[in-house]
């Protein structure tokens, strides 16, 4: 039940942020679908492996892969699709709890949530970095091979 609610709300969160970033037209809808699917991927991998770092990294890698391919198909900047789709993964909750435990002098909980915040941010960054470099190199080689064939 909780998972379903999260998947549905992540659709609206991604699509809403696409509108905030001034994306127009049907793209907004697809960005919402992408956001929801990537969150579903996160929940699935998290369920199977139980490893939050791994699952966030996989989910952000999926977002990057999808937006790199789709952006070349419909000829828009990659960042237009990628940034709003990544929004549900942004660790706003961890940021808040870290801050609130710090203020309330609960050191053990503060350390725990700071660790979780850094882990989440690191996982997303790692997913983006690895996939972006793989995808850009792949497309560079792909276009070179394609232009040689002609």
């Amino acid at each position: 039940m909780e998972n379903t609610v999260q998947i549905i709300t992540s659709f609206f969160a991604s699509a809403g942020f696409a509108l905030i970033f001034n994306v127009h037209g049907r793209k907004t809808l697809w960005i919402g679908v992408g956001g929801a699917l990537s969150w579903a991927a996160y929940l699935f991998v998290n369920d199977v492996t139980g490893n939050m770092f791994m699952s966030l990294m996989m989910a952000s890698a999926a977002v990057v892969a999808v937006s790199e391919v789709l952006a070349r198909k419909i000829k828009v900047p990659v960042i237009m699709l990628m940034a709003p789709m990544l929004i549900p993964m942004v660790p706003g909750g961890a940021l808040y709890y870290t801050m609130s435990y710090l203020v309330r002098d609960e050191n053990a909980m503060f350390a725990e949530s700071l660790r979780s915040l850094l882990l989440q941010a690191g996982a997303i960054a790692a997913g983006i970095i690895v996939t972006t470099s793989v995808m850009t190199n792949f497309f560079a080689i792909y276009y070179r091979v394609k232009s040689k064939k002609k």
Binding site: F17, F21, I87, V90, I128
Partner: peptide
């Protein structure tokens, strides 16, 4: 979540790569 600079973070990561 409304205030966190999500786009700036994504762009800066892509710049570094």
């Amino acid at each position: 979540m409304l205030l966190i600079p999500g786009l700036a973070l994504t762009t800066s990561l892509r710049d570094m790569i």
